[in-house]
């Protein structure tokens, strides 16, 4: 199993500086949160999807379509039921609450899709360098990327462990919820113990390679804000400013919704 989302493609998005990509990601979040009209949200979603298309990253959406659908429906239903409005549709559900739910569903899915595009185009190490260049301490960034790198390793150890325990007769699917919960003990303990056990070798290997040897450190991956980054950033800032202006001018809101 390889849960990593990174796609090694050669597109102009991939070649952007990680800091630019982080800014775009946060910008996309902001963009998704500016409007409340589902139509405007749809436009934002379309923009994000076009961007993803150019980054050749949309295939990853296939891996999370279920999450997108579940979150979308859930949000729609929740807000339709919880929210209030002026125009009754049926029972106690009003048009405005449905529209609001739709809007929020689009908003969440848009942010998730933006996140997927970011992860599809940015290596872990680039995330780390980006964080470091933005002033986050190296050791923290190191812990984040190392954890990312270890997830598939631990997942495959977990798979071996579940095979070993199933061979001994463990059946996770029988029993009531309490019994089933407790059956995870024979899986969780070996996963935990075998992983944690490597802490010392891991730490020694790090120190033996000069981890924390001195203050200054160089990076193998090149990062530099180039002309391309500047263009993208300028375009995006203009887009953001225009959106905020629209909203301030009263466009893209939703009348008549009460939480």
């Amino acid at each position: 199993m390889d849960p990593s989302l990174y796609l090694d493609r050669d597109t102009w998005v991939h070649r952007l500086d990680p800091r630019t990509k982080m800014f775009l990601l946060i910008g996309a979040f902001v963009l998704a949160f500016i409007f409340l009209d589902p139509l405007y949200e749809l436009v934002v979603l379309a923009l994000v999807l076009i961007f993803g298309y150019m980054a050749k990253s949309l295939e990853n959406l296939r891996r999370i379509w279920f999450i997108l659908l579940a979150v979308g429906l859930l949000t729609l239903v929740l807000w339709s039921l919880v929210g209030g409005g002026r125009t009754p549709l049926f029972l106690f559900v009003e048009l405005e609450s449905v529209l609001y739910g739709l809007s929020i569903a689009l908003r969440i899915d848009t942010t998730i899709i933006a996140g997927v595009i970011f992860l599809s185009t940015t290596r872990n190490e680039e995330v780390a360098i980006g964080l470091v260049k933005l002033g986050i301490p190296y050791r923290f960034a190191f812990a984040v990327t190392t954890a990312l790198r270890l997830v598939p390793t631990i997942a495959s150890t977990g798979f071996t462990i579940s095979q070993a325990q199933r061979s001994r007769g463990l059946d996770l699917d029988s029993g009531n919820i309490l019994q089933r919960t407790r059956k995870y003990v024979p899986l969780l303990v070996p996963v935990f113990v075998t992983t944690i056990r490597s802490t010392n070798v891991f730490s020694m290997a790090l120190e033996s390679k000069g981890f924390g040897a001195g203050g200054k450190r160089t990076f193998y991956l090149r990062t530099a804000l180039g002309g391309r980054d500047v263009v993208v950033l300028v375009v995006f800032v203009v887009l953001l400013a225009a959106s905020v202006a629209l909203r301030v001018a009263g466009y893209g809101t939703l009348e008549g919704f009460s939480g």
């Binding site: 579940a70 859930l74 190191f142 812990a143 954890a147 270890l150 997942a155 992983t195 730490s203 790090l206």
Partner: peptide, 24 residues
């Protein structure tokens, strides 16, 4: 260094067990 490694390992264990159960 050991604490840094423990951060990474704890995070990785947590995430590795979270992900397969990630409906939402």
């Amino acid at each position: 260094t050991q604490m840094v490694v423990l951060v990474a390992l704890s995070a990785a264990i947590y995430a590795a067990i979270l992900i397969p159960f990630k409906g939402f």
